[in-house]
Amino acid sequence: MSRGRDEVEVLAPSSLREAVQVLAEVGAEAIPLAGGSDLMVAFRDVSKLPRGFVLDLLGLEPELRGIELVEDEVQIGALTTVDDILHSSLLAAEARPLVEAARCFGSTQIRNRATIGGNVMNGSPAADSLPALLALDARVTLLSSEGPRTVPLYSFYADYRRPVAKPSELLVSIRIARAPANPIESFRKVAARRAQAIAKVILAGRAWDVRAEEEGVRIGEIRLAAGSVGPTPMRLFETERILRSELLGPRLAAEAVAVLRSEITPIDDLRSTAAYRRLVAGRLLEDFLGSLLLQA
């Protein structure tokens, strides 16, 4: 017999220590809840309710909400809201693609509630923030009673919406690389309308150490990531490799676009078609490479 929503218990730890302890004991029966923008929708279906209880994390805001410089990285607490990101001057300086992702994310109401940690743990391939984080070399820090561990975001998803975090682990923060000197960055989301929409295709990129040479443009470093084009948000390693291999010109650009189109694995679904996604992802890359040629 399924349980009704009113029968589910909610535990609300008031410290990180307490939360981790609870997860160590009964993590497998719990669903951690932050801003609820995904989970409260899921809970409309009683089969999506937890077997045990809901772990309300908002009591941890003093410890887990905020954006700060830590050593050479920007650390974003897991309970930082998307609206916090949108209005962060630190991120405006260090992580433009992430701020752009926040700008086109959901609506005011959703940006106010949705947390970056919730986004990462929910792991939707269409999440606006995740390609941006991937392009910024994000690493996530998980904490359990046995201590912290850090996982690069590109290896965080085993499969469709399956993060590698264990039930005993809590996502506490995300760290991203600071902006290098003179970065060339892009975040493009393609969706059915200009607000309050779920992405059909996302492409995020950051390149630096880009120099114009006589025969073309040399890309020193580049990060590319895409959303809604596979079971998980994807870092485009193959495409990056090709782009670092030679001078950028029309030939290499065309080759990179071809590699990107083979690297992604889009599907037909209710929001778009595989063909459109493949086509547009490639054109977004062309566009980005065009801006590299212009700005180098």
Binding site: A192, R193, A195
Partner: peptide, 16 residues
């Protein structure tokens, strides 16, 4: 109908 909700059946927002 298989897209019977507000985020799959798309109507214009103020930005559109």
């Amino acid at each position: 109908m298989v897209n019977a909700n507000f985020n799959r059946y798309i109507v214009p927002t103020a930005m559109d």
